[in-house]
């Protein structure tokens, strides 16, 4: 990938919960983490991926366009009236998705240039101006395409579009630092402070993440930083865990803290991608969020007061 091109899997308008104001989120593909609870499984791999949504499929009785057009003859009817793709024969040309009438076969991820992305983002500029919103880079992990991310942010700034990035901070510090120069807002996750726990839940050590956060906070004291914790049942949904995270956060007025309650809205996508959903059946205990919110608001008070 050059700096000028990257793989984007979604551009979402009217986002009101990720950063200031009314925003457009650009989702970049590829993530170094493998969180068990991941709500965007389609974002994990860098390359475009074919997905199949059986709910949308018209069934082979009514439509056989994917089979008819597959150059490898890799698709055949399955006994349940849907389709089966032979993984051996498939060459990932995605011709089937192009021909699918109902968009049941769908490719997550397409290559876009900086210019194309910014053109899409700028279409909603009228809303950013009034709300203080703008573009948020997200993923996957935006910094897994560091050159492209940086190029997008630079170009957004040239267009006077306010910028934010949502990152897990598992990246080279130089890459993180480079993008911070072009950011109005940094949104970064801390999922757990305990390294063993972190490895278990996400597949990677948190040492680099925590280090990066400390360094950024010190080197960019005026940059607005929102540190977030997805509250995951059975992983970090206790007062001890959240308190440990809060205690780690550098106390400075540019930093705010937010808890995101776990949701299962990404679950269907696992099935579309032919993946197992590893977090089946988990849900937050009733009332826990209320208790955790107290810690969140105390922390924010403390950060704000620090002058």
């Amino acid at each position: 990938m050059s700096a000028n091109e990257g793989i984007v899997f979604n551009i979402q308008n009217f986002s009101v919960h990720d950063g200031t104001g009314i925003r457009t989120i650009v989702f970049l593909k590829g993530c170094p983490l493998r969180c068990a609870w991941c709500s965007n499984p389609e974002s994990q791999l860098m390359k475009p991926q074919l997905a199949f949504n059986p709910m949308k499929c018209l069934t082979t009785e009514k439509c056989t366009r994917c089979m008819d057009n597959c150059p490898q003859d890799a698709i055949s009817p399955s006994p349940d009236g849907l389709i089966a793709i032979d993984p051996e024969a498939c060459i990932h040309c995605h011709t089937c998705a192009e021909h699918c009438a109902a968009n049941a076969l769908n490719v997550y991820g397409k290559t876009m240039t900086v210019k194309e992305v910014i053109r899409e983002v700028e279409k909603e500029a009228a809303f950013y101006a009034r709300s203080g919103g703008g573009m948020t880079l997200s993923g996957g992990e935006a910094l897994s395409q560091p050159d492209f991310s940086l190029a997008l942010l630079k170009e957004a700034k040239r267009h006077r579009i306010k910028t934010a990035i949502e990152t897990c901070a598992y990246a080279r510090y130089d890459d993180l630092k480079a993008v911070c120069e072009y950011l109005d807002e940094l949104i970064v996750d801390i999922k757990a402070v305990d390294d063993e726990k972190h490895k278990k839940g996400t597949g990677v050590s948190n040492q680099r993440i925590l280090e990066n956060i400390k360094c950024v906070a010190a080197e960019f004291p005026d940059l607005r930083i929102l540190i977030r914790t997805p509250v995951i049942p059975g992983f970090n949904d206790t007062e001890e865990e959240i308190r440990a995270i809060v205690d780690f956060i550098p106390v400075q007025p540019s930093i705010a803290y937010e808890l995101l309650p776990y949701h299962r809205m990404g679950q269907p996508k696992y099935a579309y991608l032919g993946m197992e959903f590893p977090y089946e059946g988990k849900a937050l205990e009733e009332g826990i969020m209320d208790r955790l919110r107290i810690i969140e608001s105390e922390a924010n008070q403390r950060f704000k007061q620090k002058q």
Binding site: G21, A126, F127, A129, R130, S131
Partner: peptide
């Protein structure tokens, strides 16, 4: 859900301002 709370109120205000601009 989209317009929940004070932040949601502000979102509607921002949307109205933009609608006016347009």
């Amino acid at each position: 859900k989209v317009v929940e709370g004070e932040a949601g109120t502000q979102k509607i205000v921002d949307m109205i301002r933009t609608w006016c601009d347009l």
